[in-house]
Design a protein around this nucleic acid. Sequence first.
RNA 1: GCCCUGGUGGUGGAAUCGGUAGACACGUCGGACUUAAAAUCCGAUGAGGCUAAUAACUUCGUGCCAGUUCAAGUCUGGCCCAGGGCACCA
Length: 822
Amino acid sequence: MLEKEYYPQQIEKKWYETWDKTNPYKALDKSDKPKYYALSMLPYPSGKLHMGHVRNYTITDVIARFKRAQGFNVLHPIGWDSFGLPAENAAIQHGANPKEWTLSNISYMKRQLKMLGLSIDWDREITTCLEDYYKWTQWLFLQLYKKGLAYKKTAPVNWCEKCATVLANEQVIEGKCWRCDSEVTKKNLSQWFFRITDYCEELLKDLDLLTGWGDNVKTMQKNWIGKSTGAILKFKVAEIEGLEIPVYTTRPDTVYGVTYLVVAPEYKDIEKLTLPQNQKEVENYRLNAKKLSEIERLSTTRTKTGVPLGTHIINPFTGKKCPIWTADYALVDYGTGAVMAVPYHDERDFDFAKKYNLEMIQVIDGVDFEKDKVYTNKEGTLVNSGEFNGIKAKDAIEKITQYAVDKGFGEFKTQFRLRDWLISRQRYWGAPIPIVYCPNCGEVAVPEEDLPVKLPEDVDFSVQGKSPIETSPTFKYTTCPKCGAKATRDVDTMDTFVCSSWYYMRYCDAKNDKECFNREIINGWMPVDQYVGGIEHAILHLLYARFFTKALRDLGLLNFDEPFKNLLTQGMVLKDGAKMSKSKGNTVDPDEIYQNFGADTARLFILSDSPPARDFDWTDAGVEGCYKFICRIYRLYSKFQDRIKLNYNFDIKSLSQKDENLVRETHIAIKKITNDIEQEFQFNTVISRYREFVNAIYEYIKDEKTINYEVLSFVLLTLIKLLSPVLVFVSEEIYSQFNPEKSIHEEPWPKFDENLAKTSMITLVIQVNGKIKDKIEAAQDLSKEDLEKLALDSSKVKQALEGKNIVKTIVIPNRLVNIVVK
RNA sequence: GCCCUGGUGGUGGAAUCGGUAGACACGUCGGACUUAAAAUCCGAUGAGGCUAAUAACUUCGUGCCAGUUCAAGUCUGGCCCAGGGCACCA
């Protein structure tokens, strides 16, 4: 028996405990059904679930349940991205072991996830900080290493003093650490890199394959990869025999306008290029550039500065001698570190030349060229450019480069902005890099059979300035796997982005202890059909995961090119117009919502007000409104529970108009809800449809004497199935009253009849000169002639037409008639 | 500066193809039920004009300005604003 009123706590407890025992959403590796892989970004176990998680996992869960009901074999897993700095920092502050701290967070959050009613296959849960996972992260590292995709080099790296760690370029935001927001400085260290730049071209090109991704994300990735095409041109130094400065340029067409050349303050040959009388000034400038770089980066109104070196280059096209300067607007790690300056046709060069009174030569002319203004337009034609005069700038790019190639002082060049991925971290809480340094053999890979290289437990977390891992007496010192000599381990751990670059593959074969995943199984499940997560991962995580997929494909471990077919980037959860955060004190604890309203209310509300991609504003009134709506639904079933039967039976032709209308409303609801989920996952409108449908049912039952219980059974059993992906607990509770044999979640998705999924009558809108004059009820699918006749019959229309000539009449079937008059 | 996304009532947001702008809610107001309140149910609700208030009628309204069209939130061109991303990338 259903209670008279809705008590979510009782209902949810009962089903949550049942599902916890039976794990009813096991995904089968072998099935006759088509596969569907629904994936949420794996959570970092920070302590408690927040509303962003609730939104993310509810969206994915509804998709998973919908697809399951539609007959797909659905994989819907979850796991824990559980390595990383916060665990280590928090552990230090709380005096606990990072592992214990992390695992206790996981168990707390796991309980919260289960209470949310997610249809997850819990047998596939993974935890990246446990040996059975990071063993395979290390194994994958070794495969990349063998393929030459992991390599070590000394490089100036971004160093965060506070975190005592190296940061990837991607983790430096406006010169500050992405996590703690403190200043980042440079430091030279020997580091491991992944050769992601080998895949620049493919990572860029394959964005076109990702038709299920938003343009915003694709554009961000495109800009990040930053392809540009141009040329390398070599300039001889006038004062030093045999020395050349190559420059990279996208505008070789402007080479006749070069009036000076700039090298970065850190340029390798800068000392050679500096004349003795300029030495002091240059030295000062370079020191300043180094010191200022951090502060300067923050200034938005930076004016360009620089000093001349005293030497000159000779333009091979013109023979012209031009001074060499150093200036910090040239970047040492982009292109060649040197720039050919063409003041009239480049904004930066223009500003710089104005400031230092350097020569300007116009080499491109167009209608809108103005003296004393920079002209970067490529539409113009070349002037003052010797034999190239009169050629369009666009064509000159190739012609001039070809000329340089032929003469031996240039080449075509494609340049990317993307750098190799620095993965070493001087931290404890990560997967150790499986490399040993032997005095005899050098750098030696740990043999695969010796994996995992376990994280030591005997460490001192209170040390500063170096990784706690180095304080372990047992970890660092080992023997060489090749020659047996005394050797040391690499004490660095891997960036957590490495762990999260392949986790979605491990889900496919999570329990495999022989290999990281079975090739057949993973090829069966992958690629992910729908990936759901925050826009903040648009660049880093998604780019790294794409790189991993391509690299593992080339290693022969899998046979697909892209990991994520469709991507849904969900918006943030706000409260009172601001992002929910602990510091603002405007967070909402899921447990509190479960307690007061139940998880079904939380699920319903988080989907209701905004489309998934937009930001969502959490309001207490909204939560209550959703709770009341569930009460309204529950009362409906409670009231009619004795009259609802599974084996209803009626003939549409013999129904009263009222009954027929409700049957039509039901088919309309199925159609619209199905479409709204399938297209774009518009859950906010799905929920509006629910409400419209429930309103129609209430309208129907107003007069109890006329209720047809066969029809009502059909309608209410359809409604409960439509609600079931969202209201997972209450729908199960209600349905179990009518069918104790089967879960609502195993029932197939309702089908609609196209002929019944429309109202019997339509509202015909009649306009005269585009202004609405009348609205009349008409039958569906009348001919154009009939509609026109109906329109002309309207007395209001007749009145409006009086004394006027009809020029033409436009008829849109089932919608409107527009009569144009003079 | 460049790139992406968006701009619709008091609020969140609807609106296949260009075809009734404001679905569905929240809020507000009014009514029923109740000794009373809560809950529930029913109704009104873009702004203005004309009416004694109503019904009817009518004007204006989807960031701004122009255009295409019988018809524009939707298409085209130009601008403004907000949010996010990148930022001296040669």
